[in-house]
Design a protein around this nucleic acid. Structure first.
Length: 400
DNA sequence: AGTATGCAAATAAGG
DNA sequence: TCCTTATTTGCATAC
């Protein structure tokens, strides 16, 4: 298991019969040559390039632990809501409900034949700053129960978005723009017992996320539908995944802060329509794909092969080289350019990670102190915030 | 059938 | 115009 190079792995693919779906888009490996080109030659020994699987499983694990732990005791709270005959949803079961979205916009998928089993893959494991807020079930829970039991949710008003939440005037979260430093790692403040991260009032957002979900369910809408509805209107649009992540707060405080008003507005409108008898939320739920953000490209396995092979040979193709590649593959040149950028970034991150791990292992064996290697430094822990090393994380707060 | 999540494409921001 | 770095977000698919 040496650091197979792309070439190697590719050759192993040989005639690539027909790959069927395999999880993930594989990225074939990166050769030491490629790494060297990035100036990271250091000591990346061939064998050091870990496989994607290995790496991710690691990170995944940690994030999952957190999430699951929360899930467990949260289950009792709203979970019931999720199960089929959700009490809440039932209330409106008559009429409203299910808007069958017939042809769910199918995206033009460029075949997705996955990848093969390349032995070595490189992944990027970025480690944004992430906070996890361990549940603090308080008012929120009350609300939840309240709603579910006293199905007073008639009409649309279930709970007012803002709810008591001890907010002695929820310091309207300051726009993140203010100190928006790309690397501005979560500044955590505790004001009046309220925790803020980057000027975002976490409690308030947590509260909103919970309520949002309840209201959504009350309207009998799925995350997918909300996502579609959002793309049918102006402003930013989000996918089902995004809605899901927001509800779970599996996002950074900053993102949550950004999405919140969008959902807030949308929900208000949706409920208004519902109230006015427009049981047909259907027309409110478009099927248009997002126009805001470029649709994510799906490379064919063949294209990836080609790109990886090229990357192996040269991590920094010239403009004209990229142009010809784009023509050859029939993808936008920009897409190709971005692919290379991302690829370089992924390689760098992986190597960095490996080195860090190596160093740490070494340090450990020498009984070197734990010196929290976290990048986010001083985070008050009173709310059990913990720095996550994985993807996003606001709070692996699960609302249901 | 709806939701959750891994991976990586797309974006933002500062050179 | 393109790079890097950090981050956001969605496709595909697992659950």
């Amino acid at each position: 298991m040496t650091a197979t190079t792309t070439d190697a792995s590719l050759s192993s693919l040989g005639g690539l019969p027909h790959l069927t779906t395999t999880p993930g888009n594989t990225l074939p490996t990166v050769s030491t040559l490629a790494a060297a080109q990035l100036g990271i030659q250091g000591q990346i020994t061939p064998g050091s390039l870990v496989s994607q699987q290995q790496q991710t499983s690691t990170s995944t694990t940690s994030s999952q632990l957190l999430t699951q732990g929360l899930l467990n005791h949260k289950t009792s709270v709203v979970t019931s809501t999720t199960s089929s005959p959700s009490p809440v949803a039932q209330v409106f079961a008559n009429g409203t409900q299910a808007l069958s979205l017939a042809g769910l916009a199918t995206q033009t998928v460029l075949t997705k034949a996955p990848p093969t089993s390349q032995s070595h893959v490189i992944t990027q494991l970025s480690m944004p700053q992430n906070l996890s807020i361990l549940q603090q079930q308080g008012a929120a829970q009350l609300v939840t129960n309240q709603v579910i039991n006293g199905q007073s949710l008639v009409g649309s008003h279930i709970v007012t978005t803002t709810l008591s939440n001890s907010q002695a005037s929820s310091p309207s979260i300051t726009s993140p723009t203010s100190a928006d430093s790309p690397g501005g790692h979560g500044t955590v403040n505790t004001i009046n017992n309220e925790v803020e991260v980057d000027g975002v009032n976490l409690e308030e957002i947590k509260e909103f996320a919970k309520v949002f979900k309840i209201r959504r369910l009350s309207l009998g809408l799925t995350q997918t539908q909300v996502g579609q509805a959002l793309s049918a209107r102006e402003g930013p649009t989000y996918s089902q995944s995004a809605i899901c992540r927001f509800e779970k707060l599996d996002i950074t405080p900053r993102s949550a802060q950004k999405i919140k008003p969008v959902l807030e507005r949308w929900m208000a409108e949706a409920e208004a329509r519902h109230k006015n008898g427009f049981n047909q939320l259907s027309d409110f739920i478009g099927t248009e794909p997002s126009k805001k953000r470029k649709r994510r490209t799906s490379f064919t396995p063949q294209a990836l092969e080609y790109l990886n092979r090229m990357f192996d040979k040269n991590t920094h193709p010239t403009g004209s080289e990229m142009t010809s590649m784009s023509q050859e593959l029939n993808y936008d040149r920009e897409v190709i350019r971005v692919w290379f950028c991302n690829k370089r970034q992924a390689l760098k991150n992986t190597i960095k990670k490996l080195k860090a791990a190596e160093a740490e292992a070494q340090a450990n064996s020498v009984e070197h102190n734990k010196s929290n290697r976290g990048m986010t430094s001083s985070l008050p822990f009173e709310y059990s915030y913990s720095v996550k090393s994985t993807g996003r994380k606001f709070g692996s707060e699960i609302i249901s």
